[in-house]
Amino acid sequence: MIRMTELSKPEEDLQDPEALPQEALNEMVANLMKFLLFEYRAKEMASEAEMLKKVLRDNKEHFSVVFSQASECLQLVCGVEVKEVDPREHIYIMVPTLGLTCDAMLSSGKSMPKACLLVLVLSLIMQNGDCTPREDVWGALSKWGCLSGGSTVS
């Protein structure tokens, strides 16, 4: 099994920790991260309204906690910072902070971005509650043309 340690806890000043079970919070954070990573990969901006409509739906009151934790996880795990570009409309853009980009190529010159593989594996682990069977990871990687042993398929 592949496990990730918990990166952050809800801050008490943002939300009453008793109001939302940790499992539900983790699921919302993972879903928001998946959405933001999709937007990052598509080189799109994301608005608070869009995040509420497409991801949090019935949990709008938890937006500040979920957004804060998802942003922190993206920066710590994926090297992507969520920056507000329009404070009035609450529109955000994701920018790389570790020198990794979705356009960075493998050293062999193949067409698959390095950071994209990292983002794929980490988001898969986060979506599955910090624990993902190795077979699921390799299954997802094989869909991208990666084989075990470091070989890639063109």
Rank of each mutant, 00 (worst) to 15 (best):
V80E: 06
C131E: 14
E23V: 12
E72H: 09
N26F: 08
E50P: 02
V29C: 07
L74G: 00
W138G: 02
V121C: 10
S154W: 07
V121T: 08
I2N: 10
L37T: 10
V95W: 07
C73K: 13
E44P: 02
V153Q: 08
S68E: 11
K114G: 04
L106Y: 05
V55C: 03
Q75D: 14
L25E: 00
Y92I: 01
A46Y: 00
S108E: 04
L147E: 09
W138I: 09
L20Y: 00
N128G: 01
L20S: 00
T97W: 04
C102M: 13
Q22A: 11
E12L: 11
L120Y: 02
V119K: 04
F67A: 03
L141G: 02
M4P: 07
Y92K: 02
I91H: 02
L122P: 02
K143W: 12
I125G: 03
F63Y: 15
E61H: 09
S71A: 14
L36A: 03
V153S: 10
L7H: 14
K43I: 01
Q69Y: 07
R57V: 13
N59Q: 12
T132M: 06
S148Y: 11
A49N: 09
N26L: 10
S151F: 13
V77K: 06
A104N: 14
Q69W: 05
V82W: 01
L141Y: 03
L117N: 04
N59A: 10
M4K: 14
S64D: 15
I91C: 04
